Computed example of a mutant assay.
Amino acid sequence: MKLNLVNRIFKILILTSLFFSCSSDLDFDQANDLKLEPVFVANLAYFNIPATQLANDGGTQILFDVQEFNAFKDSFFRDNLVKAEFDFEIENTIVRAFRVEMVLLDANDQILERDSYSVPAYSGTPNIIKYPTEVFENDRLDLLKKTVKMKFFVIMATGPALDQNSVGNLKLRSSANVYMEIE
């Protein structure tokens, strides 16, 4: 009997506590102050050139590739972009030195920017180079927003002759970190 009475009192106290709550005025104007700052990471460019594709008598050689760069066709993306960072990593296992150039072109194929990366010849030790981050802000970001094509040049320096039996590869990996501000 006492247990039943204690049980009832406990239930009554629990139920009455449910009727007491805290509340405050809701401020829906806070939605006007909302500011989103997303960061996106994306692959920018990649290539893997085997030494057999570079067969020559030891002289210089130039290869190039052109890629469409449609990132800024969308006005939402273009208008809300505040910063971009490009990271480049090149691995060379070929006994020749290289220079890799990235050229940003506008709609009229005019050069907006040219960045060059020296790659030493492979000498038997790991040859992976991480280059300083290319940061695009302010005026440089405005140039990037005009980019519609990216052209990559691979310039091979003079050195030992390469043939169909040559070993090694030249690999480029790059990524972009894109910072946006949406209000």
Rank of each mutant, 00 (worst) to 15 (best):
E89R: 14
F72S: 02
I111N: 14
V167P: 02
S75C: 01
A161M: 03
D142K: 15
I128G: 07
G59F: 02
S118F: 15
I155D: 08
N7Q: 11
K151E: 08
L13C: 10
F28C: 04
P38N: 04
E134G: 07
K73F: 04
Q30S: 14
K35V: 12
Y122Q: 05
A157H: 13
M1W: 08
K171I: 15
M102D: 08
D57P: 05
D79T: 04
N70T: 05
F47I: 02
G168K: 05
Q61R: 01
M180Q: 15
V148A: 06
T16R: 09
R114C: 08
N56F: 00
C22T: 09
S17K: 06
L34T: 08
F64I: 00
D109W: 10
V167G: 11
F69M: 01
E68G: 11
L141V: 01
D163C: 07
G58P: 00
A176V: 14
N48M: 12
T52Y: 00
I155Y: 07
E89Y: 05
E134Q: 15
S75T: 11
I12Q: 01
N56Q: 02
V103P: 03
S17W: 08
L172M: 11
S175T: 13
N56Y: 00
P126E: 12
N56V: 00
F20S: 11
V82L: 00
D115R: 15
A71S: 04
D57M: 12
T147E: 03
A121F: 09
A42N: 12
T147K: 02
K35M: 11
S174L: 04
D163A: 07
F88Y: 14
R99N: 12
L3F: 08
R99W: 05
L5I: 07
T16F: 12
F19W: 11
L3D: 08
L44Q: 10
I129S: 11
I90T: 08
I128P: 01
A42P: 00
I12Y: 04
R173V: 11
D163S: 13
E85G: 02
D25E: 09
I182K: 09
L81M: 08
L162W: 03
K83L: 02
E89P: 02
L34S: 07
I62F: 00
I12C: 00
L105D: 02
L18C: 09
D139Y: 06
N127A: 08
K149Q: 10
L5F: 06
V6Y: 13
A107G: 01
P132A: 08
Y131V: 02
R8W: 07
I155K: 10
N32Q: 05
S123R: 14
S116I: 14
I49H: 05
D79N: 12
P50A: 10
N48S: 15
I155A: 07
P120F: 06
I182T: 08
F88D: 07
L104H: 15
D139Q: 09
M1C: 09
F69I: 00
N169M: 12
L104N: 14
T158D: 14
K151M: 11
N92M: 06
I111K: 15
Y122H: 13
S166R: 04
N70G: 10
E183P: 15
L54N: 02
K171N: 13
N108Y: 11
L143P: 05
T93N: 09
R8T: 06
F152Q: 03
F88K: 13
F28Y: 11
F20V: 13
V167W: 01
R114S: 13
I12V: 07
N7E: 10
V135N: 04
V6T: 11
